[in-house]
């Protein structure tokens, strides 16, 4: 067994979390709250050292970039939510962020997610795979077409679409499970190799 106290603590916490697989219990809850506390504290430190300090405090107070007082004030308007009489001021921040984000993203989405994807779907259809992709995209889109009732030819096409969707979902499912399993293997390796040295 390991003689490192920190390995023992980590092993104890790992088992505490896995104890939830049996049922919800105080050990799991303690570990969960520990995780939340540490994660939030860590996030605040990251935020301070990666955003607040280098992008706001240093340029503002050391380099004299006074323009940055505006985003600081706009951000601070969110704090008005704590005062019911003035909580409407937080809408200004939300509107500002939403307006800019949608303005920046709209042309990018049209370009990257719509036009480029459409371009990628306009295949020469010289082989079976290309034909399957074009037919698959068309059928799945018909499946999500709700402006007319799915009857006759529309119904038949949308049913082919379902088959493609099912294969896609199956692929996503299998991929997700394998990702989780690899994490599980990592944790088991820690328990049986680093902690109790059962695996050499």
């Amino acid at each position: 067994m390991s003689s490192d106290i920190f390995v023992w603590i980590a092993a104890f916490l790992t088992i505490a979390i896995y104890s939830f697989l049996y049922k919800d219990n105080p050990l799991y809850k303690a570990a969960e709250h520990l995780f939340v506390g540490v994660s939030v504290g860590y996030s605040i430190v990251i935020l301070y050292f990666n955003v607040v300090s280098p992008r706001l405090l240093v340029p503002l107070f050391q380099e004299g970039d006074w323009v940055l007082i505006f985003p600081a004030l706009i951000g601070l308007l969110m704090v008005s939510r704590f005062f019911p009489k003035y909580d409407w001021l937080s809408r200004i921040t939300i509107a500002f962020v939403l307006g800019i984000s949608t303005g920046i993203n709209l042309p990018l989405i049209i370009q990257a997610s719509l036009l480029k994807q459409l371009q990628g779907t306009m295949l020469a259809m010289t082989n079976l795979n290309d034909i399957l992709i074009v037919v698959g995209v068309f059928c799945v889109m018909i499946y999500f077409y709700f402006s007319s009732e799915h009857k006759g030819i529309v119904n038949s096409v949308s049913k082919i679409g379902i088959l493609f969707i099912m294969v896609g979902f199956g692929a996503s499912f299998g991929y997700t499970v394998m990702a989780r399993i690899s994490l599980l293997i990592g944790r088991l390796e820690f328990l049986f190799h680093d902690w109790i040295h059962l695996i050499k």
């Binding site: 068309f138 889109m141 692929a171």
Partner: peptide, 12 residues
Amino acid sequence: VPNTAAKRAIWF
């Protein structure tokens, strides 16, 4: 192939 077709249509 089938996964790309389904995901692309969903993405549209």
